[in-house]
Simulated scan of single mutants.
Amino acid sequence: MDPLCGGTRAARLTAQGKLAAAWTYNPLGILATFAAAAAALRLTVGLIARRWLNLQIHWNPRMRWAALALVVFALTLLEIRQQGRADLLTKPY
């Protein structure tokens, strides 16, 4: 199992409003669905208002390493979690 396994099912369940079931398959699917909805909202507001919402983060080297370490740690935990749910993720939906 890779960390993305179950992401499509989780995204579908998130779109249906079944967050607990989506969490069971892959928590990253919930995050991806909300990020896609935020991007679509940003696009809609930008096209209508002709003003774009921007987020600027000023990174210093220490913040970059901390963010990278956090992402690697989170993906490692997700990989361990997904391995524990291999029986759920390999059966048909």
Rank of each mutant, 00 (worst) to 15 (best):
C5E: 11
C5K: 11
G6H: 00
G6C: 02
G7F: 08
R9T: 08
R9D: 01
R9W: 02
R9K: 08
A10C: 08
A10Y: 01
A11C: 12
A11V: 07
A11Q: 13
A11F: 02
R12Y: 12
L13V: 00
L13Q: 00
T14N: 01
A15S: 15
A15W: 03
Q16H: 14
G17Q: 03
K18N: 05
K18P: 01
L19S: 07
L19H: 08
L19C: 05
L19E: 09
A20V: 11
A20N: 10
A20F: 00
W23Q: 14
W23K: 09
W23M: 08
T24H: 11
T24C: 08
Y25L: 07
N26E: 00
P27F: 00
P27A: 03
L28Y: 14
G29L: 12
G29A: 01
L31M: 08
A32V: 07
A32I: 08
T33S: 04
F34Y: 14
A36C: 03
A36Q: 14
A36I: 00
A37C: 14
A38F: 15
A38T: 01
A38G: 06
A39F: 10
A39G: 01
A40Y: 13
A40E: 10
L41C: 11
L41D: 10
L41P: 01
L43C: 10
T44R: 14
T44S: 06
T44G: 06
V45S: 10
V45P: 10
G46I: 00
G46P: 02
G46Y: 02
G46F: 00
L47Y: 05
L47H: 03
I48T: 06
I48E: 01
R50E: 13
R50F: 07
R50K: 09
R51H: 11
R51G: 03
R51Y: 10
R51K: 12
R51M: 04
W52C: 07
N54D: 04
N54E: 03
N54V: 06
N54A: 06
L55D: 01
L55K: 10
L55A: 05
Q56P: 05
Q56K: 12
I57S: 02
H58D: 11
N60F: 01
P61V: 04
P61R: 00
P61W: 01
R62T: 15
R62S: 10
M63I: 04
R64T: 03
A66S: 15
A66P: 02
A66T: 02
A66W: 13
A67I: 00
A67E: 08
A67R: 03
L68M: 12
L68E: 10
A69Y: 09
L70V: 12
V71C: 08
F73P: 04
A74N: 07
L77C: 13
L78V: 01
I80F: 10
I80S: 07
I80D: 09
I80A: 12
I80T: 11
Q83L: 15
Q83M: 14
Q83Y: 13
Q83V: 05
G84W: 02
G84K: 05
R85T: 03
R85H: 12
A86H: 09
A86E: 05
A86T: 10
A86D: 06
D87C: 09
L88C: 02
L89P: 00
L89Q: 03
K91W: 07
K91P: 06
K91R: 15
K91S: 08
P92H: 06
Y93N: 12
